[in-house]
């Protein structure tokens, strides 16, 4: 199979980290609640007269903490393309889809996708010697397979309090000290960096949702590229439908969307690797 195809599917299948994750800051869309002038009138502003030197250490020098971004030209272009893709394709389709399928059903579909990615989480938890998390992941898989109708529900979390432990190869590589490398904006997927992109391709190989090496790995669900794309598209739309409007809020919030997405992604990944 040609490598470009593999790559594109890898992107589609791992959409999870794009808008959805950076969107955490923004959670969802809505009309604004209040008028600022009124808000300001009611409040006194706390001011700190002390000096801020000790805080400067925490946040670091803005030039030193800046993300390594030698491809900013391409990255800005791709951010723009993704923006158009989201606005004109993903968002309208997901909005329609959300009208047809109730949220509970969409959450179940989402649970199922998470459930099926169990091999990726297990492998990466083990590679980082997170033994307890690996055991919990395995327990989750068993419990949710049997009592969660094959992963449609998540009784392991709701009834037993076993949380999912998301780990991916990018985090594992980071755990072993591999630097993140230059920031890269991937098509559809959005923010990434060299290390995480390599990780993405690796994870995709062991993902049951992607047909690579289907002859050798018995748990692969799709058997050909057509099925890969179908599955990836369903996941993308389903995922987007659970985060509708969040991206618009980010856009509204950011003074500079490109650098906002870049820094939020980088901070978030660094934090995840630390944990």
């Amino acid at each position: 199979m040609n490598i470009r195809k593999i790559f594109i599917i890898a992107l589609l299948l791992n959409y999870t980290n794009t808008f959805a994750d950076t969107a955490i800051e923004n959670n969802s869309t809505a009309t604004s609640i209040t008028s600022l002038s009124d808000v300001n009138a009611t409040s006194e502003i706390n001011t700190s007269t002390g000096n801020t030197t000790s805080f400067e250490d925490e946040f670091g020098n803005v030039n030193e903490t800046a993300v390594f971004d030698p491809f900013s030209g391409y990255n800005k272009f791709m951010t723009n393309v993704n923006d158009k893709f989201y606005k004109n394709i993903a968002d309208p389709i997901a909005t329609g889809y959300a009208k047809i399928l109730p949220e509970k059903a969409r959450i179940s579909v989402n649970n199922l996708f998470h459930h099926l990615r169990f091999p990726i989480r297990l492998a990466n938890n083990l590679l980082q010697f997170k033994i307890q998390n690996s055991a919990e992941e395995t327990g989750r898989f068993v419990v949710n397979t049997i009592f969660g109708l094959g992963g449609l529900f998540d009784p392991a979390k709701t009834d037993l309090g076993w949380e999912r432990h998301d780990e991916d190869l990018g985090q594992t590589l980071g755990f072993y000290g591999l630097p993140e490398g230059p920031y890269i904006v991937l098509p559809i997927l959005g923010s990434s960096n060299l290390r995480d992109t390599v990780g993405l391709v690796g994870d995709t190989y062991i993902s049951p949702l992607y047909s690579a090496d289907a002859d050798d790995i018995c748990y692969k669900i799709p058997q050909n590229t057509g099925q890969d794309i179908l599955i990836a598209s369903v996941e993308l739309i389903n995922k987007t439908s659970l985060h509708l409007g969040e991206y618009d809020l980010i856009k509204k919030d950011a003074l500079d969307l490109y650098s906002f997405l870049r820094d939020a992604y980088t901070q978030q990944r660094r934090q995840k690797i630390k944990e």
């Binding site: 955490i24 946040f59 800046a66 650098s259 820094d263 939020a264 901070q267 978030q268 934090q271 995840k272």
Partner: peptide
């Protein structure tokens, strides 16, 4: 929020 500091993102944006 999820490992992303509000102040830090603003600092980078303003610096940019």
């Amino acid at each position: 929020l999820a490992g992303v500091s509000i102040i830090q993102t603003y600092r980078q944006q303003f610096a940019g």
